[in-house]
C-alpha cells in the first residue's frame, strides 16, 4: 500500500480536489476579466502622450475630465434612455405577444420558431438590414412613414438628432422582443393550471387573473429576462456603430461607443475611464438586482 501511494499524484491534483475542475475556468476569468479590469483602473490614471510616445501618469485628471465632459453626460443620458425605454417596450410588448401565442395549437409552434430566427442574427448585421430599410432616400421605413404622413417629405430618421435614437432602438426592439416573448412563453407554459381554473370558476376577470395570478407566478422568469436584457442593452454598441456611428453630431453616443471612439482617437486613458465607469455601474446595478429580485441559478 505504502509503495502504491508514493506513485500517486499529490491530493490537490486528484479528482477529489476542486482544483483540476475549476482551475481552467478560474484562469480564463483571471486573464480575460480580472486582469483587464485592473489594467483598466491603471489606464484610467494614465494618458498616452503622442509627443513622448508613452503612457504618462496623470492622477485624477481623467476622472475630473469625465465629470466635466458634456459629451460624456450626453452619452450617459443616451445609454440610460436606451436601456430603460427598450427594456420597458420589450417587456410590455413581449408579455402581450407571449399571452397571444401561449397555446397548445400546433400552428402557434410555427410562430415561436419564426421568432427564434432574430435571436441568432449578429447585431451588427441586424443593424445593416435596418440601415437599408431606414435609408433617407430609398428606405422602406421613411417611405412608409411619409406615405401615412407621420413625418414630413424632407424628414429623415437617422440624420435627425431627436429621431436617430429611435431609429437605433427599433432594431433592438425588433431583434430582442422575441427573446422576451420566448422566455415568457416558457414561463407561462410551466405554470400549473389549477389556480387559473379555480379563479375562472370564482368568476375572476381576465385582467384580474393576470394581475393577481400570472404576474406573481412569473416573477422569477421576468426577473431573469430583465436582468439579461438589461445587461445587454447597457453594453450595446453594435447597432449605434453601424447605424449612426454616434451621429448626428453626438446625439446617439452611448457610453460604450464613446469610450471606443476615444480609444480610436488614441485617448487610451480617457477611453478606459469611460468604459470603467460603465463597467462599475452595471456591476453594482446588476448585482443589486440579483440580490433584491432574488434571482437564483
Amino acid at each position: 500500500m505504502a509503495n502504491q501511494k508514493s506513485y500517486s499524484l499529490p491530493s490537490i491534483m486528484t479528482s477529489d480536489s476542486s482544483l483540476p475542475w475549476l482551475l481552467p475556468l478560474i484562469t480564463m476569468l483571471i486573464v480575460f476579466a480580472i486582469i483587464p479590469f485592473f489594467y483598466n483602473i491603471y489606464l484610467s490614471f494614465h494618458e498616452f502622450v503622442p509627443l513622448k510616445r508613452a503612457l504618462i501618469f496623470v492622477g485624477w485628471d481623467n476622472w475630473i475630465k469625465l465629470f466635466t465632459d458634456g459629451v460624456f453626460w450626453g452619452s450617459l443620458k443616451v445609454s440610460l434612455f436606451y436601456t430603460f425605454v427598450c427594456l420597458i417596450i420589450q417587456l410590455v410588448l413581449g408579455m402581450g405577444i407571449a399571452l397571444l401565442i401561449d397555446s397548445d395549437d400546433p400552428g402557434f409552434g410555427v410562430i415561436r420558431s419564426v421568432l427564434t430566427l432574430t435571436l441568432v442574427i449578429p447585431p451588427a448585421i441586424a443593424g445593416m438590414i435596418f440601415l437599408i430599410m431606414e435609408d433617407a432616400n430609398y428606405g422602406l421605413i421613411p417611405w412608409a412613414l411619409k406615405s401615412i404622413g407621420l413625418i414630413g417629405q424632407e424628414d429623415t430618421i437617422l440624420a435627425d438628432p431627436s429621431l436617430a435614437i429611435w431609429g437605433v432602438m427599433i432594431v433592438d426592439i425588433w431583434q430582442w422582443t422575441p427573446f422576451m416573448v420566448l422566455i415568457l412563453v416558457a414561463g407561462l407554459r410551466s405554470l400549473p393550471s389549477e389556480p387559473f381554473e379555480s379563479a375562472m370558476i370564482d368568476g375572476a376577470k381576465p385582467f384580474q387573473i393576470f394581475r393577481r395570478l400570472t404576474l406573481p407566478m412569473l416573477h422569477k422568469v421576468i426577473a431573469v429576462a430583465v436582468l439579461i436584457r438589461g445587461i445587454d442593452l447597457w453594453r450595446m454598441v453594435d447597432y449605434v456603430f453601424v447605424l449612426t456611428s454616434g451621429g448626428p453630431g453626438t446625439a446617439t453616443y452611448t457610453l460604450s461607443l464613446y469610450s471606443w471612439q476615444r480609444f480610436t482617437f488614441v485617448q487610451w486613458g480617457y477611453g478606459a475611464t469611460i468604459s470603467l465607469f460603465s463597467l462599475i455601474v452595471i456591476l453594482i446595478v446588476g448585482n443589486a438586482f440579483i440580490h433584491f429580485a432574488k434571482v437564483k441559478w
Binding site: F37, N40, S256, S275, S278, W297
Partner: peptide, 22 residues
Amino acid sequence: IISIISARMIPLVSISIPLYFV
C-alpha cells in the same frame, strides 16, 4: 456563481481596451 454572472455583465468595450494592450 455570482462572479461568473458578473463576468457576463462586463461591457465588451471595457475588456477590449485593456486586452488590446495585453
